[in-house]
Design a protein around this nucleic acid. Structure first.
Lengths: 326, 326
DNA sequence: CGATCTTACGGGATTCGTAAACATA
DNA sequence: TATGTTTACGAATCCCGTAAGATCG
C-alpha cells in the first residue's frame, strides 16, 4: 500500500507547472527546502526521478512527463469529490428522503420545501406519501431520512423530533345543520350518516376509538380509501365525514364546510420522526427547523371554518393551520 | 486546500465495507483506536459525520452513503495511477524514444529491442531513423531519450554513453579485383569509379576527409541518397561503393561482396548518446546495457568478408559485426 | 559570482499503540 | 455483562522552517 498525501501530488504538479522549486514553493505557501523534501519523498515512493534538476534548471524526466497528466487528473477528481463532500457536509447539497402522511404531503410539506429551497437550493428531495404505518416502517429501515407520521409513536427505533396534533374536522355541505352551531360535539355528528376512510389510516383509528369510548354506533354509509372520495360522497349528500384539518381535500369542494370537532379525542397525534441511533445530516436538521418554524407560525384559528372556494384557492400556498405543536 | 491522506480514505472504505472499526483496523494492520482517530479526522475535514456508531453497531450516515462510491472510485483511480507510476519507475513499462542512424536501425537495433523485450516486455519503442545531424538535434531537444549517432560528438549538450566505431567497407561485385586481395587499401579503391552516398551522411564525411587526406580525386559515378540505391548501382556495374559495414543494405545483394578497408581513416565513430543533464529512466539505462552487451559480443572478424546470399539470410537476425566498442 | 537546489538540524505537530473509560444491546 | 468504540497519554515519527552548504551557468 502506498501511503501518499495529496500535498505531495500538488507539489509535483506545481513544480512541473512553474518549472522551479522556488516559484512552486511560493505558490504552495511553503519553504523551498520543504518542497525539495516532498518531491524527494514522492520520487522515492514511486521509485524514480520525476525531475532532472540542478541549480539552474528543472525539467521533467521521461517518467515525470508521462505521469504528470495522470496524477493531475487523479488529483483533480479527488479534489472535486472532496469539494462535493464538503457541500454534503455543510448541507448545501445532498438528497433528503422523506416519508410523509398524504395529508401533510399535500398541505404543509410543499411550503416547507419551498421555504427550505430558498436557503439551501442544492438539496434535492425524495418524497413518499404513504400511510402512517408505512412511514414508520420506512424510517425504521432507513429507507428515508425523515418521516412525518400519525398516531402515537412508541417504537423504540423511532425518535420524535417534533410532536404535534392534527385537529380533526367534520366536513359537511354548506347549510347543513352541523355547519351552524358554535361548537360541534361528537353527539351532534353521530346523528347523521357517516362516510369514513377505510381502516388502516390513523384518522380512522382515532375516530373508531372515540366512537367506542362514547359507546355510540353511527350509520356508516361508505368506507372509501381516499379522502377525496369521501369528500365527493359528502358533496353528493351521502352524509358527513371526518378528516384531518390539514388535508387539502377538505378544502377542495366549494360547497362544503369543514368545522373542527370540539372533542379532545378528535385530535390525531402527528410526529416528525427519525431513525433512533442515526444522526441527521446538516440538511436534514435544517429541514426539521423549517418544519418547526412553519408549524410554529400556525395559529389554530378560524381557518378551520373558512369557507371553501375562491378565497381558499388564493391562499392555497400558505400552510394549513390545523396542525398544532405540542 | 484540503490536506488529505490516502490512508484516511482507505480507512473510510474499510470501515464502510466491514461495518466495524475493529475488523477494519485488523484489515488495515492498525490498532482500533488509531482508526477511530483517522475517521474522526476525515469527518472533521469534510465537515460531517460519515458513520453513526455506538458500541454495538456502525452504519453509514446519509452523507457517508453518498460519499462512499465517489471516494472509493477516486481512491481506486489514484491507486491505479500510482501503480502505473511504479511500473514506470522500475522500468517495467513506459515508452522509449530513440533516434538512430539508419544503418544501426536496420542492423543492430532490432536485435537489441528483441533482446530487451524479453526482460521488460511492458516497454514500448518509438524509433526514428534519421541521419546523424538530425539524431543529435532530436537528442538535444529532448524529443528522444536516446540517440545513436555517427561522427565525432563534441556537443556539450550530448553525453556519450557508449562509443564505438563502424568499419567502412568497400562493396563490389564478386569477382571484382577488389574482392581478391588480402587487404584493401585506399589506393586500390580509387582506381575504380565510385558510387558514394550524398553529402550530409557521416559516411560521406569520413570518405571525403580520407580522400582529401590522401590527396586523391576519384571518379564519382553517382551520388544517391539511399544506400540501397548505391548497392543497386554497384550491382549494375557502375562502380564500387563505400558503406558502413553495419548497414543491412551491404548484405542485400547476393552477387556483391563487402570487404573492410584497411585504413584507420575509414572507420566512422558511432555513439549512443543522451541529453546532457537529463537522467535516464530505468528502462532507458537497461536498454543502454542491452546495446553494450550486444556490441560487446560483436567480434570484428571475417564476417566483413562474409559472402552475401543464403548464408547471410540465415544469420540475418544476428547482430552485424561491423561495429566495435572503444 | 549569483541564483537555486540540497543537506543539516531543531522544534512542533501528527500519528501510532497501550491502557483505561465508556456505552449499548 | 460482554463487546466494541472512545478517550487519554507517552513515544516515535513526520514535517516544516531556518541556516549553511553545494552546484551550475
Amino acid at each position: 500500500m502506498i501511503d501518499l498525501n495529496l500535498r505531495e501530488i500538488r507539489a509535483f504538479v506545481a513544480v512541473a507547472q512553474t518549472g522551479s522549486f522556488t516559484r512552486a514553493a511560493t505558490r504552495l505557501h511553503l519553504s523551498q527546502p520543504a518542497l525539495t523534501v516532498q518531491i524527494r519523498r514522492l520520487e522515492e515512493l514511486i521509485g524514480t526521478r520525476l525531475f532532472d534538476r540542478n541549480s539552474r534548471s528543472v525539467a521533467l524526466t521521461a517518467a515525470g512527463r508521462e505521469l504528470l497528466p495522470l496524477l493531475q487528473k487523479s488529483l483533480y477528481d479527488m479534489e472535486n469529490v472532496l469539494h462535493d463532500a464538503r457541500a454534503l457536509g455543510d448541507g448545501s447539497s445532498g438528497k433528503l428522503r422523506i416519508a410523509c402522511l398524504p395529508s401533510f404531503a399535500s398541505s404543509v410539506l410543499p411550503d416547507c420545501i419551498r421555504s427550505f429551497a430558498r436557503t439551501l437550493p442544492g438539496v434535492t428531495f425524495e418524497i413518499r406519501d404513504v400511510v402512517a404505518s408505512v412511514v414508520n416502517q420506512l424510517v425504521r429501515n432507513e429507507d428515508v431520512d425523515l418521516g412525518v407520521t400519525g398516531g402515537e409513536v412508541d417504537d423504540p427505533a423511532l425518535d420524535v423530533l417534533i410532536a404535534g396534533t392534527d385537529q380533526l374536522c367534520v366536513v359537511c355541505p354548506r347549510g347543513h345543520p352541523l355547519a351552524k352551531p358554535r361548537k360541534v360535539k361528537l353527539a351532534d355528528i353521530v346523528r347523521y350518516p357517516l362516510v369514513l376512510t377505510a381502516a388502516g389510516t390513523s384518522v380512522r383509528a382515532v375516530v373508531d376509538r372515540a366512537l367506542a369510548d362514547a359507546d355510540v354506533e353511527p350509520t356508516l354509509t361508505c368506507e372509501p380509501t381516499y379522502m377525496m372520495t369521501a369528500v365527493a360522497m359528502v358533496r353528493a349528500g351521502l352524509g358527513v365525514t371526518v378528516l384531518p384539518g390539514s388535508a387539502r381535500e377538505v378544502h377542495a369542494e366549494p360547497h362544503l364546510v369543514a368545522r373542527p370537532i370540539d372533542d379532545a379525542r378528535f385530535t390525531r397525534p402527528i410526529a416528525l420522526v427519525k431513525r433512533h441511533g442515526r444522526s441527521l445530516s446538516k440538511a436534514a436538521s435544517a429541514f426539521v427547523d423549517v418544519v418547526a418554524r412553519q408549524l410554529g407560525q400556525a395559529t389554530p384559528d378560524r381557518s378551520h371554518t373558512s369557507r371553501i372556494g375562491r378565497e381558499s384557492h388564493k391562499t392555497a400556498l400558505r400552510p394549513i393551520k390545523s396542525i398544532r405543536l405540542e
